Amino acid sequence: MTVTDAVCVTNDMHDSRPCTIRGEHSDICDGYEYRWAEEHRRYVATGKECHGCLPRLASNGLLCRPCWESLQSAENAYGPLAELLEEFDVLVVPIGDGGGGGEKARIPLSGTKIALNEISSYRGTAETIDLDAWVSRPEGAEEAVRFTRAVRGALRSFPTTEDPHRVPRVRCPQCELLSLMWRPPVLAGDSVRIDCRNPECGFVLDQDAFDKEQGWSMKVGAP
C-alpha cells in the first residue's frame, strides 16, 4: 500500500467509529455490521445490516477529509474553550421561575478540569501545533482523533447552539418507528446527524442521506 492509498486511521482504532463510505463495501463484507467488543477482544457481528464498510482514504496525513476538517475546527476552538474550562469551577444559576434578585444555587462543575485534562493529554499545552506533522504518523493521528472527540464532548457540555430534538412525523427507514433524533453539528465541518432512539435499531444517517431517503430537505435548525 502506498502513502496515497492509506486509509483513515479511525479504521485501525478500536475506540472510534471507523470512517467508511456509505453504500460501499469491502471485499470481505458478508452483509453484516461488525463492532469491536472489548470483552472478547475481537470484532463481533451486531446482527444489523452493513450500510457501508469501505474505509475512507486518508487525504491529510492519516486522516480522511472529514476528520481533517474536524481537527482544524477543534484546534481553532481549543484556545477559547481551554480558557473557559480553566476559569469556571462553578455555574451560578437563579432558582425559581421568576429569576432576577432571587436566591442563587451553586452547581459544582468539577468536570471542567477533567475535560481540560483530557483534551491536554492528547494535544499538549503548546500555544500552536503543526497539524500536518501531528497526523503524519499513526500515533499522532490517533491522538488527533481523540483530541477532536474530547473537544467536541466539552463543547456539548457547554452548548452555545440549539439542542438536539426529535424529528416530527418522519419514520425511521429501518424500524419504521417515529423515533428519529436530529443532532446539530458541534464543530465546523461536522455534518448534521440523524439517529434512531430505538435501542434495538440505532440506525444512523447524515443529512444528505436523510434527505435522499425522505425525498425532502430538512432545514438546519428547524424545530
Rank of each mutant, 00 (worst) to 15 (best):
C50F: 04
P55Y: 05
D190Y: 06
P185Q: 03
S191K: 13
C196I: 04
N198C: 07
A144Y: 10
I114K: 13
C64I: 11
S26A: 12
R17M: 09
P223E: 14
A141W: 02
K219S: 09
N76C: 05
T112E: 00
G215A: 06
R17E: 10
T125I: 11
G52A: 02
H14D: 14
V204Y: 08
S120H: 10
D89A: 13
A126Y: 15
R41P: 00
A222W: 05
S110C: 10
E142N: 06
C29H: 15
I21F: 04
M1I: 01
H40T: 08
E142C: 06
F158S: 13
W36C: 06
S191D: 14
I129W: 12
Q72A: 08
R166F: 05
V192D: 02
I95Y: 04
Y78P: 06
C53W: 05
V151S: 04
A37F: 15
P164M: 05
C8R: 07
I119K: 03
G215P: 01
P18C: 03
P184D: 04
A154D: 05
K219V: 10
S179K: 06
L54A: 03
L178S: 05
E87K: 09
V7W: 01
E75D: 12
T20W: 02
C53N: 02
A74E: 04
R41H: 14
F210G: 09
C64P: 13
R22Y: 08
M218I: 10
D132H: 09
